[in-house]
C-alpha cells in the first residue's frame, strides 16, 4: 500500500517543489546539471538524511530527541580512538559505531520516558551532557590518523562514478527504515503509539519498549552517521557535528513528519532533506551568499507547516463544538 493520504500530499508537494527548483536550476544555474554536482549534493546531504531517518522513527512514536548529533560525535570519537589503536576493519568499524550509538539511544529512551518531562527539554540536557563529557575527555583535539582502508573516497564504482560510503550508508539505512515501517508490524505499532499512546497502552503495547526501540534506532543510525561523517572528513573533531540538530528537525518536519506523532514516511523525509540541500546547492552555485540558506530554510518549513496546521488544528473552542 502507498503512504497514507496526508503523507502522500506532502510527498507530492515536495516532489513538485524539487522538480521546479531543479528544472529551473538546470536551465539557468551553471554547473548544476553536472552529475558530479549531484553526487556532491548526495554525499554532503547524506549525513543530514541519516539523522533525519532516525529522527523520523522517534517523531512517529510521538517523541522527540535532539541529542543525536552529540551521540554521533561520541561514537565517531570512540571509533577514531579504536582505529588509532588497532585496525579493526570495516566490520569492526561499523559494529563499534552502531553499538555506541545504540547504547546512548537506549539511555535517552529510558531517561526521556521515565522523566515524563517534555522530551525537548530532557534531550537538550542530554545533548549538553554528552557533548560536554566528550569535549572534556577529548580535550577538543582533532583525531585524523586512520588506517588505510578507512581513507578511500570511493568504496566502489558504478559506471565510472564513485559510490561513497556515505551514499551506501544512506541507501542501506533508508531501505532498512522503510522495511521496518512498511513491511513489519513495527511500523504500525510506532504509528499507533504516536497517534494515541493511551489506547496503545490499553491494548497491550509496552510504552517503554516502543520508546526504547524508537530512541535506540535513532541512536544506532546516529552512530552510523558519525562514522559516515568521520570518513567523509577523514578527521574527527569533537563538536563539529553539534549544532546541526535543528536543521535536521526542520528537514524531517518538512518531509511530512509531525511533532504530534504518528505521521511521516521515509520517502517524504528524504525529499525534505533533498529539498533543503538543493536550495543550499543552488545558492552556492549561483554565487548568492550562503547565509541566505538558513533564513530560506526556516521560512520554507514554516510555510510548509502553516497550511497543514491551519486546516487540521482548529481553534481551541471549535474542537469541542
Amino acid at each position: 500500500m502507498a503512504e497514507p493520504l496526508r503523507e502522500r500530499s506532502a510527498i507530492r508537494r515536495l516532489a513538485a517543489g524539487i522538480g521546479l527548483l531543479g528544472g529551473a536550476a538546470a536551465l539557468w544555474v551553471p554547473g548544476f546539471a553536472s552529475p558530479y554536482n549531484w553526487l556532491d549534493l548526495l554525499s554532503s546531504s547524506s549525513i543530514t538524511a541519516l539523522f533525519a531517518l532516525g529522527l523520523l522513527v522517534v517523531l512517529m512514536a510521538g517523541e522527540l530527541d535532539i541529542s543525536f548529533t552529540a551521540i554521533a560525535s561520541v561514537s565517531q570519537f570512540l571509533l577514531a580512538v579504536a582505529l588509532a589503536r588497532q585496525d579493526i576493519g570495516w566490520a569492526g568499524t561499523i559494529v563499534v559505531s552502531a553499538l555506541v550509538g545504540l547504547l546512548l539511544g537506549l539511555v535517552n529512551g529510558a531517561v526521556a520516558t521515565w522523566l515524563r518531562a517534555p522530551p525537548i527539554i530532557t534531550t537538550i540536557a542530554l545533548l549538553n551532557v554528552y557533548g560536554g563529557v566528550l569535549a572534556l575527555i577529548s580535550r577538543g583535539e582533532m583525531l585524523y590518523d586512520f588506517p588505510d582502508f578507512f581513507t578511500y573516497t570511493a568504496v566502489a564504482r558504478i559506471g565510472g562514478y564513485p559510490l561513497t560510503l556515505q551514499t551506501i550508508a544512506l541507501a542501506v539505512t533508508a531501505v532498512v527504515t522503510a522495511l521496518m515501517l512498511k513491511a513489519t508490524n513495527l511500523g504500525r505499532i510506532l504509528r499507533a503509539v504516536g497517534g494515541n499512546r493511551d489506547a496503545a497502552l490499553r491494548l497491550g503495547i509496552n510504552g517503554m519498549t516502543v520508546n526504547l526501540l524508537a530512541y535506540g534506532y535513532l541512536g544506532l543510525v546516529s552512530g552510523i552517521a558519525g562514522l559516515a561523517h568521520a570518513q567523509l572528513l577523514q578527521a574527527v573533531t569533537p563538536g563539529s557535528l553539534i549544532g546541526r540538530e535543528l536543521d535536521v528537525v526542520a528537514a524531517t518536519i518538512l518531509g511530512g513528519a509531525s511533532l504530534a506523532g504518528g505521521r511521516g514516511g521515509v520517502v517524504g523525509t528524504l525529499l525534505g532533506v533533498l529539498f533543503i540541500a538543493l536550495i543550499g546547492n543552488i545558492l552556492v552555485l549561483s554565487g548568492v551568499s550562503p547565509y541566505w540558506h538558513q533564513a530560506v530554510t526556516g521560512a520554507i518549513v514554516l510555510a510548509a507547516v502553516a497550511p497543514i496546521a491551519w486546516r487540521h488544528a482548529r481553534p481551541a473552542l471549535a474542537e469541542v463544538a
Binding site: 513489519t184 504509528r191 490499553r202
Partner: peptide, 29 residues
Amino acid sequence: FQDFALFPNLSVVDNIVFADTVDAPLGRS
C-alpha cells in the same frame, strides 16, 4: 472502551487488525 481506544491516524484496516500486530510486533505485515 467508552472512548473506543482507536488510532485516528491509522486506516480502518490498520485499526481493526491492530491486535494481531500486538501479538507479533516483529512479524511481517
